[in-house]
Nucleic acid binder design. Structure first.
Length: 416
RNA sequence: GCGGGUGUAGCUCAGGGGUUAGAGCACCUCACUGUGGCUGAGGGGGCCGUGGGUUCGAUUCCCAUCAUCCGCCCCA
């Protein structure tokens, strides 16, 4: 029997990890420059948590969750998104009890039972951040600013953020009603499944790709008309602040989010180069979620960015070519002890060192050094042993020099 | 969950109802017993995804299944 990774999952091998680590490092250094701290929550939570936060009509909850019952008969779910866990931890540890603003970042796997496709896996990975405790438009702007900085750091040019305001819950209800009225005649021609799906979340019609629906939605009412004065002012202020930041954005009044907890500002960055899964990240405000999950009133916003998708659109870049600084070669058996001694001393100084565990002949050892991409080879044979010296060979240009052992250990010869 | 494409060597891919299934790259050995890459010569490697059917005979045709890719859907 040959085993393979479960459908929709993949192994990340060392050669893929350079790009991966680069992405994570960029994210981390950006969010840390804004004072965000890492939060790590369990990979699974009570199923109820996700149903309460994302909403039981969302596809994520209704058909994509990895839910299981443990031996204590608890219903648990591998997390399909990051926000719910952070908010749960925030409430559990009473972090918001004294008020104030709290900034978290995370890097997590997410699990969704869905048909695998380009940019879509059953175990995906996200980096994200949550800014809890501020209802200021400056908090929206900060999150959007970090998002654009992140993509720019990855070399993804001309990042455009699509933004929209979906207002407060009340406005959304009224607007949803208006949409339903607008499509009433059309709905009467469709089957029951489509009808019930549409009635549950009418706003999804806005970004539907069906040409017929697209045409129909052109004449549909716009959300602006249903926004409260407060929401409108807020959205206008946000646009001004984004201008101040110099952020490239575009208002898209059809932009809605699939998870129920969002309100007011929502945003997304897309790419047309990765096929159907064009969304690189999604975020927005969730002013009621903390309270809804049992905490204090805590207006908040956040964003989650898909790592797999970022990697798809990211331009190729050169990563460091060498995996080792020194590969030690023992020309004869008597050199082996010295090889171990010197490689360990160099390792303690932070150099990446290795040698042939099988101690084959010098030619084989050289080949191995080459294959392991070592910057230098250090040759230790009988000559070197009697002179207490080493021969250092630069593997790029083939230059070779003989230096004393002490000089080799104290100098940074061959380091660069 | 629905539709379409593809599964042949480690990788990229040819091929084709009939002895022993190919190429390029990679790998190993030797030329080269204290020196990798370059060159030359040689070599190892395959249940042709899996299960069933048709057939004298299937890796090739048919069905199923699994995986993978693309689209729908959904979303990151």
């Amino acid at each position: 029997m040959n085993y393979q990774a479960p459908r929709g999952t993949y192994d990340r091998l060392p050669q893929d990890s350079k790009a991966w680590e680069y992405v994570i490092r960029q994210f981390q250094s950006i969010v840390e420059s804004y004072g965000y701290g890492e939060i790590s929550t369990p990979m699974f939570e009570e199923t109820e948590l996700f149903i309460r936060s994302s909403g039981d009509t969302s596809d994520v909850v209704s058909k994509e969750m990895y839910t299981f019952t443990d031996k204590g008969d608890r219903s648990l779910t591998l997390k399909p998104e990051g926000t719910a866990g952070v908010v749960r931890a925030f409430n559990q540890h009473k972090i918001g009890a004294q008020g104030g603003i709290h900034r978290f970042w995370y890097f997590i796997p997410i699990f969704r039972y869905d048909r695998p496709q380009k940019g879509r896996c059953r175990q995906g990975h996200q980096v994200g951040l949550e800014l809890l405790g501020s209802d200021s438009v400056y908090s929206d702007a900060e999150v959007i600013d970090i998002t654009t900085k992140f993509y720019r750091a990855l070399g993804i040019d001309n990042v455009t953020v699509f933004i929209n305001s979906i207002g407060c819950e009340n406005a959304r209800k009224q607007y949803a009603e208006a949409i339903l009225q607008h499509v009433a005649t059309y709905l009467s021609t469709k089957d029951e499944e489509f009808n019930s799906k549409t009635r549950k979340n009418p706003l999804r019609l806005l970004d539907n790709k069906d040409p017929e629906i697209k045409e129909l939605m052109k004449s549909a009412p716009k959300i602006d008309a249903y926004l409260s004065e407060h929401s409108k002012d807020r959205f206008n202020k946000l646009k001004q602040v984004l201008d101040t930041y110099g952020i490239n954005y575009q208002v898209d009044s059809t932009l809605v989010r699939g998870l129920d907890y969002y309100n007011e500002t929502v945003f997304e960055v897309t790419s047309d180069t990765i096929g159907a899964q064009s969304s690189l990240c999604g975020g927005g405000r969730y002013d009621n979620l903390v309270k809804q999950l049992g905490g204090p009133t805590t207006p908040s916003c956040g964003v989650a960015m898909g790592i797999e998708r970022a990697l798809l659109v990211m331009p190729e870049r050169e990563y460091e070519q060498y995996n080792l600084d020194f590969f030690f070669v023992a020309a004869t058996d008597s050199g082996m002890n010295k090889v171990i001694e010197l490689s360990n001393k160099k390792r303690l100084k932070g150099y990446r060192c290795n040698f042939d565990l099988d101690f084959r002949n010098i030619k084989q050892q050289m080949k191995l050094a080459h294959r392991l991409n070592s910057k230098n080879v250090v040759i230790i044979g009988d000559d070197e042993l009697t002179k207490s010296s080493v021969t250092v060979k630069n593997m790029e240009n083939g230059d070779q020099l003989s230096i004393s052992e002490t000089e080799f250990l104290t100098n940074d010869v061959g380091a660069n």
